[in-house]
Amino acid sequence: MPIISLKNLTHTYSAGTPLSVSAIENINLDIESGELVGIIGHTGSGKSTLVQHLNGLLKPTEGKVFIDGEDIWSNKKKIRSVRFKVGLCFQYPEYQLFEETVYKDISFGPKNMGMSKEEIDLSVRRAADYVGLRHDLLNKSPFDLSGGEKRRAAIAGVMAMNPKILILDEPTAGLDPKGRREILDMIVDYKKKTGSTVLLVSHSMEDVASVATKILVMNKSQVAMYGSVDEVFSRADELEKINLDVPQITRIFLGLRKRGIDVSADVYTVNEGCSRLLSLLNGGEC
């Protein structure tokens, strides 16, 4: 059974007025448990609207959202509990920090869930470990942290709810290359340790290619593609048509093929590319 299942999901902003805009239209999608799904699309393609349906922040205009086989809107009063099951971390999450100490801030979610003191303590420390936040920082004011540490503390605030599904909306926005790398590694690591399903919204094909198991491409309020990294990037022409790039390394191999060199282009990381070229140069097959 898929952990996320969307049936004919449609959302229209300002429905019933002349200003109405469909942000997503008739989306059907199943996501299996344990995947790390990279969600890609232009600003305005509907990705943000889509993810806000998964934890019930937005209510579908039409269609249904099933999490763990359960229709999340079957009981309106229980919608808050869906938010604990599906953790959503927004873009620039450091702007949500508000408590006196980092510890208190991370425990905001667990407290809202009604966890006991011991459970909260355990969750907070575990979440700090997931994001690589030193425990001596927990007693500091979140406003005294560096930019990168703030980002980690804020992500920990969502992880501390032990969600089954974790959604991160551009967690690397505004970070430098090293900071981006660290956050991506941390996400892969978190998934490995907890076995949860992770959805990662990103603008960077390179980032998504290096960590995701599946890729979801949104375009003009619709799901344009959903499949494994291979399946999606093998449709480079179609991606180009909707103005999305494949990673540069893939483009290099596609370019080589166009020049008549017999090499397959399912290369998404520099290391893969290097070994493939080496075997080609050494006269081997690839």
Partner: peptide, 20 residues
Amino acid sequence: VGLDVPQATQLAAALIKKGV
């Protein structure tokens, strides 16, 4: 120093390391 280079440059650097 925490920066990055374009993947094309990375690829060249990786190949050079292998003696290409």
